[in-house]
Amino acid sequence: MLLLDLLLMLLIAYGFGFLYYGLYRNLSARVHGRFGPSLAQSFSDSIKLFVKEESTTFGWMFYLGPVIMASGAVLNVLFIPFLNQGESLQGLSSYGNLIVVLYLMVLGPLGNALGVGSSGNPFGVMGVTRGLTRLLALELPFYLAAIGVMIDAGSADFGIIMQAQSTQSNMFAHPLLFAAAFISFLGFMGKSPFDVVGAPQEVYSGPATEFSGKFLALLMSQSAMFSFAKLLLMVNLFWGGADHLGELVAKTFVLFVAATFIGSVYARFSTVQSVEFLIRIPTLLGIVGLALL
């Protein structure tokens, strides 16, 4: 039963992840004044890449990098409950908690960074370095917000955190914390102005530079699932989770659309600027939010 539940969760994350990616391409196309590709495009892209005849590798660590990253994404999906009540779609969330998930979010990227590093491509490593440099500022506001939420709920357990919001969601109870977390979240989703990691005009394709064929397909799939997990995390922490699948879809979609639209009207900061910005504005919001707790 649990196994079926887990598979269902992965399927939902995979499906909605790619669906949202397709929607992202469409929505940003509308902002640009174009028609985007069809929604099926991202699925077919990943399948096409997966069945490519040949892909280059630089050795066993390069081969394992995307696998570790995808495993990290899978773990993230499984350890965040999809719904705030009931038995189904809870995954392994009772075996972990918010702190575990916050750290799991970094595990996959670190594994992939090992793969990127073993390719010996300077652009890849520069991308990773940018990511890690940004991370030190990106996580701080999110951590502050998460700490506030945990202290408020008196637990790091997702179920209790969501239950504590049954009367009023954290977004309204702690608007400053939400604002801090949301700005971080934009960065986690790789949206402007914090999209420094794979900035094509600067570091070629960043960490993805050397990956091709099935490796790229795996990376695309994990990124779709991973972004769904991030949406899920935000919904659970600040919007009280979801009672049923429909509500979950609605909430994640709203969050996702907000991130997409904000992302398409800002220029990219440089790494240093994004670190400085994140340390100043959202961190300050977070600290004030904690003080008001």
């Binding site: 997966f50 005849e53 040949e54 892909s55 280059t56 630089f58 050397e210 099935k214 490796f215 795996l218």
Partner: peptide, 24 residues
């Protein structure tokens, strides 16, 4: 996932020279 990658139709070909990288 490793099994999935191994079973894929796509063959992973190892580069002969470590300097064989995307270099603009």
């Amino acid at each position: 996932l490793l099994g999935l990658l191994q079973l894929a139709h796509s063959k992973a070909k190892k580069v002969k020279d470590p300097l064989d990288i995307s270099y603009c």
